[in-house]
Amino acid sequence: METATKRRAPHLSDTQRLAWLRLIRSENVGPTTFRELLNHFGSAHTALDALPELSRRGGKKTYRLFSKDKAEAELAALYKMGARLVAMGEPAYPPLLRHIDAPPPLLAIRARDPLQQELTGTQKTLAIIGARNCSVAGAKFATTLAGDLSAHGFTIISGLARGIDSAAHKAALSAGTIAAFAGGIDTIYPKENQALFSSMIAANGAAISEMPIGRNPRARDFPRRNRLISGMSLGVILIEAAEKSGSLHTARYALEQNREILAVPGAPLDPRSVGANKLIQQGAALIQSVEDVLEVIEPTISMSLPLHHGIDEPAKSWPALEELETPTTLHPKNAREQDRQAIIDALSETPIDQDELLRFTGVSLQTLQLILLEIELAGRLERHKPNKLSMIHAASS
């Protein structure tokens, strides 16, 4: 019986994986758009065929589809360096990451064993982050805490940055530690941490990235990286952070993702401690030892968060694996021009809630979703949290 026998976790076929890669790398397709396209068309193959026409109807004359040759070259380069592209729902895909807003449909994972699943597939993951220009005391505490948490069976994830990140990774080497990259999985940043990264891989650690191979990290890529760090973790531990540091952005993501936020208090006159101290004032757990962390985190491990869904048991409206190659008949293939114009007229540069837009225009939900896809693929739509939309008027054609 299925209740007594654990089902084998699903996998994409090579053909499906190639189509998923082409779709997520195509112009104006992000994680949210990717999911909407699969929900609408039933498969990545069908969605790829529809992209140019969808974009044209949205107002863009030419559309850049990611080619099959480029996708095959990216997959080959990943395999050559010992990395793999893992789809959401496959065993190595981080289970907690699956439940964030707009999770990456494909994640590059690099490890000594390309098929490694133990680290990235565990839910006992904690993030340790903090200042790049950390104090000696901060680095020492990060080292002690990461080592103690590793000894208690936790996997430590961080961003491979200088300072606190590096100290945490080094202390967790023996148990395995995960680095989240802002650029491609082949791009070590900063370069001075090349030796540390090599040590991590040699010690059965891993690296993750949602970015294309060969991409150098840009400023706007680090927030996306930070959401992966918090999204993979039961909680985020902050050790020294200035008032406007990237570490505080990670803490904000953790709050949005319903993760625990923990902070180490610092000297009031040290600007590196302002961010952590303010988080404590705002309700973050005050941490002074591994026992403090365990007291906060251990109750969350047994919570009933549905972590064991596969691709065929979606938690966020993903189609079943067996349906990925079956075009859907649940959604319209085209929309009336009068409905399209009504939605475009109703949108402006001021964000509007999608439900309000639905009520105002009077179109069906399926028609609205199709027209929004058209406008977004044309580069004219911007999505805002939690469920708001606005028009971008200066789009290129």
Rank of each mutant, 00 (worst) to 15 (best):
V29C: 06
D186Y: 02
G362N: 02
T15Y: 11
Q16F: 08
I129R: 03
V264A: 10
A395G: 14
A263K: 13
P265A: 08
R35F: 02
A285F: 12
E295A: 13
A146T: 00
L279I: 03
G205I: 00
D165M: 04
R252D: 15
L358F: 11
L262W: 05
K278D: 08
D292N: 11
E36P: 04
H152C: 12
A241C: 10
K316Q: 14
T361D: 07
I239A: 15
K70D: 15
A139P: 13
I178H: 00
G147D: 01
E72N: 10
A151K: 08
P386Q: 09
Q194S: 07
Q257M: 14
L248K: 07
D345K: 15
N216I: 14
L279C: 06
G130F: 05
L23H: 02
R215P: 10
D186A: 00
P327S: 07
L305K: 15
D292R: 06
L38F: 05
A87D: 00
I239H: 10
R383M: 13
H169R: 01
R336I: 04
A102K: 03
C134F: 10
P114L: 07
P314K: 06
N204H: 01
R110D: 00
R98Q: 14
P114A: 05
A346E: 12
G362K: 05
R98W: 05
S247I: 08
P217Q: 09
S135V: 11
T125E: 03
E192P: 04
N39H: 15
L115C: 09
A335C: 13
G283N: 04
S390N: 11
L160H: 00
L48D: 04
L321P: 00
N226D: 11
T187Y: 11
A87K: 04
S199N: 13
D312T: 14
I392Q: 12
D69G: 04
P190S: 08
M232A: 13
N226C: 04
N277F: 05
L294R: 14
R110F: 02
W20D: 03
K316P: 02
G246T: 12
L377D: 14
L370M: 09
S158C: 03
T144P: 10
Q123R: 15
E256Y: 12
P327N: 01
N133W: 11
Q288L: 14
K140S: 15
S348H: 09
L307C: 04
